[in-house]
Computed example of a mutant assay.
Amino acid sequence: MSEDGHRPDPATEAFVTHRNLLFTVAYELLGSAADAEDVLQETWLRWAGVDLSAVRDRRAYLVRITTRQALGRLRVLGRRKESYVGPWLPEPLLTAPDVAEDVELADSISLAMMLVLETLGPAERAVFVLRDVFDLGYDEIAEAVGKSLPAVRQIAHRARAHVAARRPRGAVSAAETRAALGAFQRAVETGDLQGLLDLLAPDVVALSDGGGVKQAMPRPVVGAEKVGRLLAAGVAVWGPVSTVQRTEVNGHPALILRVDGEIDLVVALRMDDGRVTGIYTVRNPEKLTRMERATAVSR
């Protein structure tokens, strides 16, 4: 209801009803909450001028507008990434505990999965997300991405195979991730790294995103020995000045490290077969603005 006690107009009501869904679509396509919010503003401007009497499915129509705007913004974001300093990681979102209860949604927005989506082309990413995450029909997806129905089916098949070959192997329990993060927390708080080192897979990859603003690794670090040395150096710096908070980021357990009360970095892990295969740390302050209040996401 509006402040004067009247129902909002149908266009506003539909947009508000589906806003969290539309944000999630845009975020999964872009990996940036700030850009996703801009896409939502553009979606609203276009939606406000639509003749609703000609719209059969308002949810699908809104998703279509959002997808088109996000695809356009992907080109701009691509140029921005080309000049980005160091590894680029998706913008992490503090999420409510109930997000983890929707296993498919939590899987689709995990930082590990978002990095897999980064390896898809724009059309492949859009088709995969709309079909496999949000269960849109192929006809609706075809309209959203401007492709023929047969082409969309081929793209979906290709994207699904691409993702399957790169996504985490097997189901990862939250308990396993919490245990690994607990070892990380103990390392920071006590200086004892052995429990964490024992969990590293031989081919573990560490990525750190400072955006050229905060000190971070300029390139990925690969291999348990090299990552172990990196962690030892990091613990030596973080331990004396940090407080560690366990939380939920992108639907999965994660850690927030604070220095003098301010968020310094977010740590998320990728787990495969009980071992840590990915360590993702985000330090770029522009990407940490969603860490104080939970962001609503939905399917």
Results as ranks from 00 to 15, higher is better:
residue 155 I to D: 02
residue 155 I to E: 07
residue 156 A to T: 05
residue 156 A to E: 11
residue 157 H to E: 08
residue 157 H to S: 08
residue 158 R to N: 03
residue 158 R to T: 10
residue 159 A to E: 11
residue 159 A to T: 12
residue 161 A to I: 07
residue 161 A to C: 00
residue 162 H to Y: 11
residue 162 H to R: 11
residue 162 H to L: 10
residue 162 H to K: 11
residue 162 H to D: 05
residue 163 V to S: 02
residue 164 A to D: 06
residue 164 A to I: 00
residue 164 A to Q: 05
residue 165 A to T: 00
residue 165 A to W: 01
residue 165 A to G: 02
residue 165 A to F: 01
residue 165 A to L: 06
residue 165 A to R: 03
residue 166 R to H: 04
residue 170 G to W: 13
residue 170 G to S: 05
residue 170 G to D: 10
residue 170 G to M: 08
residue 171 A to V: 12
residue 173 S to G: 15
residue 174 A to T: 11
residue 176 E to H: 06
residue 177 T to C: 06
residue 177 T to H: 01
residue 178 R to S: 12
residue 178 R to I: 05
residue 179 A to C: 09
residue 180 A to T: 04
residue 181 L to H: 04
residue 181 L to Q: 02
residue 182 G to L: 11
residue 183 A to F: 02
residue 183 A to L: 00
residue 184 F to Y: 14
residue 184 F to I: 01
residue 184 F to E: 03
residue 187 A to C: 01
residue 188 V to P: 00
residue 189 E to D: 05
residue 191 G to V: 14
residue 193 L to Y: 10
residue 194 Q to Y: 10
residue 194 Q to R: 14
residue 195 G to Y: 08
residue 195 G to T: 08
residue 196 L to F: 13
residue 197 L to P: 04
residue 198 D to V: 13
residue 198 D to I: 11
residue 199 L to S: 09
residue 199 L to E: 12
residue 199 L to I: 09
residue 199 L to H: 04
residue 199 L to D: 03
residue 203 D to W: 11
residue 204 V to W: 05
residue 205 V to A: 09
residue 205 V to G: 04
residue 206 A to M: 15
residue 207 L to W: 08
residue 208 S to Q: 13
residue 208 S to Y: 09
residue 209 D to F: 09
residue 210 G to R: 04
residue 210 G to W: 07
residue 211 G to L: 11
residue 212 G to T: 08
residue 213 V to I: 15
residue 214 K to Y: 13
residue 215 Q to L: 14
residue 216 A to L: 05
residue 217 M to I: 01
residue 217 M to Y: 07
residue 217 M to G: 04
